[in-house]
């Protein structure tokens, strides 16, 4: 037989999981959040989301085209960044400003650092922070369509003077002001369950992050109600589920993930409780993103058969 056989290194089969598939899972998990934002804030939420996605994908495509790199848009990661960025702005955000956020996310944070897998921080997160410090007024213009209802009409619950009067069910359903994706806890929890069920993410980071913020507030305020208000308010749940679990900017091992989650909780609590910002999640995430390489170094697994260096003399003697 003259057939030329393919010779390649083992293994000869691969799992069905692909980068594109994982990103698609994240997109599916984001769907309830997007739908909730449209229900709560009106159809402009969809316009902002679509615009953000289109700009993110276009920027990624354009950058790679100009630099003659293979186009990575098929992996859907720019779509994910676009949706997450949109979920981080209020419904009336001018589209031009959304585009600025997309530039900061895709061009600066992602592509200039080498594209997917190489970014030092979560692209959408940096996009959000750039918007937050550049267009503070627009980013804080939380609009709630049914403005007559209650004290939450134009503020996030974090700015309410007396949190004990807030209705937890309203908070959970997202009937209050805020950026697009952060208000409806129900939608976020659905997304979280989907991601964990499909094994796209480990539940370790969201659980330890949200759990530690809850515990710290419980200790600080002594009130379960206030602590629940804290975890249901602001960007905590959305950040914990969709941004803290970004593969590139979170630790590899379970040990690392637990430490990362608790540290996020500490920093978020510190900013919210002692700092002048009411919203600490973005800065806590950015700060901890930068620590990830160090956490990775410090939390490696113990390999099978590893002998502690103290016994090293004996180990070398036993070498084959």
């Amino acid at each position: 037989m003259d057939t030329k056989l393919i010779v390649s290194a083992s293994p000869h089969i691969r799992s069905d999981e692909s980068t594109r598939g994982l990103m698609a899972n994240v997109i599916v998990a984001l769907c309830p959040v997007v739908v909730a934002s449209a229900v709560i804030f009106g159809l402009r939420a969809l316009l902002v989301t679509a615009f953000s996605v289109v700009v993110c994908v276009a920027l990624e495509w354009l950058y790679c085209k100009l630099l003659k790199k293979p186009s990575p848009i098929g992996d859907l990661s720019a779509v994910v960044t676009g949706i997450i960025l949109a979920m981080n702005v209020p419904v009336n955000m001018p589209l031009g400003q959304v585009a600025v956020g997309a530039v900061a996310a895709i061009l600066i944070t992602k592509q200039l650092f080498g594209g997917i897998g190489m970014n030092f921080a979560n692209p959408a997160l940096v996009g959000r922070i750039v918007l937050f410090v550049s267009f503070t007024n627009e980013m804080n213009a939380w609009v709630f369509p049914d403005a007559a209802v209650d004290q939450l009409a134009s503020a996030t619950p974090l700015q309410v003077a007396d949190p004990s009067r807030l209705n937890l069910l309203d908070l959970f359903m997202g009937i209050h002001g805020g950026v697009l994706g952060e208000t409806c806890a129900l939608a976020i929890v659905l997304g979280f369950l989907y991601l964990v069920f499909t094994k796209t993410i480990s539940p370790a980071i969201p659980l330890t992050y949200v759990g530690s913020v809850f515990v710290f507030y419980l200790i600080a305020t002594g009130s379960i109600h206030e602590s629940l208000v804290e975890i249901l308010s602001g960007g905590l749940l959305f950040g914990a589920v969709f941004m803290a679990t970004d593969y590139v900017t979170s630790p590899f091992t379970l040990k690392g993930k637990l430490i990362y989650g608790v540290c996020l909780g500490v920093v978020t609590f510190a900013i919210r409780y002692w700092g002048s910002y009411t919203e600490g999640v973005s800065f806590a995430l950015l700060f901890m993103n930068l620590w990830v390489p160090f956490i990775n170094d410090a939390t490696r697994q113990t390999p099978y058969g590893y002998i502690k260096p103290a016994k090293k003399a004996g180990k070398e003697g036993a070498d084959k």
């Binding site: 393919i6 390649s8 691969r14 980068t19 590899f252 490696r300 390999p303």
Partner: peptide, 25 residues
């Protein structure tokens, strides 16, 4: 089925670490 798929950029998902029976990275 014999042709290996094209390699793409690493997304640092950490699955290679989680599944390594020896606990390597």
């Amino acid at each position: 089925s014999a042709t290996p798929p094209a390699a793409q950029a690493c997304i640092r998902c950490g699955r290679c670490i989680e599944y390594c029976p020896m606990g390597l990275a």
